[in-house]
Amino acid sequence: MPDQVLFAAEVMLNGLMAGVLYSLVALGFVLIFKASGIFNYAQGVMALFAALTLVGIMDGQVPFSHLINAIFGTNIHHFGWHTPALLAIILTIMVMVLFAWLVQRFIFRHLVNQEPIILFMATIGLAYFLEGVGDLMWGSDIKKLDVGIPKGMNETIESITHGAFGYGFFIDNLDIFATFVAVILVAILVCFSQYTKQGRALRAVADDHQAALSVGISLSYIWILVWSIAGFVALVAGTIWGAKSGVQFSLSLIALKALPVLMLGGFTSIPGAIIGGLIIGVGEKLFEFLVGPWIGGATENWFAYVLALLFLVFRPQGLFGEKIIERV
């Protein structure tokens, strides 16, 4: 097989894997939008905050230590212990649930029935507030995140492809792990949504707030639930991205990678977020590989949006989004 075909196949496979990582971020957006009609601008910062909290708890860091030291003249930074990864993950989930309750109690409860643009702006405020709180709470330094996620080239795939084609494909173990996590996560979300009482309530709220309220579903409870699930998804995304590059404030920018996925897959579809992620991942990687070298490279950021825009022109609701029909 010609080298260029093999290279393109390798790029395509890696594009699929990268697409899964984008989907993980996009899922959080979809969950909140589906249940509340809110486009959550803070989703990227939530991933950052969840990852910061996880590392902070694992390392036994004292939250708000700089603030405490500045006020009381103390010099404390660490508790002096390390928390096992699993316990730290459970504690971080609890923090994200608390965050969901606070968001509902102090922001969105006061904005019920407001225009979508008002709710969107509230999430912009929330994003910057949360970034500031994350900074105050855990500091701005880069943190190494090690929760045992495998990294590096997968030897088996390399040796099989080398045996078959004379060229060993590179696939990152972290990407394979992320794919498994994404599959499990989507399966859990689908099962939760289809087969549990809370899931059905969540779908009812997503369909019609007023009708759901009229049959006794608590809107407040459902919103806390959905923000908690989005917080959990943010933790998964933040952990995987943080394991790649260390936990630092640029992590919040992964949201930019999710936007074209949402435009393409639709804001209301979980399978859309996955398929959209895969199309964007493969599309941008192949474009960079085939066309990038001719036009100076660094095409991925903008090409993902061009691709999404093309889909948007022909299918405004996205590939899997629900078509909005308003009867007069």
């Binding site: 080298d3 890696n14 590179f170 990152d172 590059s245 640029s250 990687k285």
Partner: peptide, 21 residues
């Protein structure tokens, strides 16, 4: 040969596959 990475550089799979190839 120059290979560009867009801001902020969180995703560089394409660039490193090029380098590998």
């Amino acid at each position: 040969k120059g290979i560009a990475v867009d801001h902020p550089g969180q995703e560089q799979k394409s660039q490193w596959l090029q380098i590998r190839q």
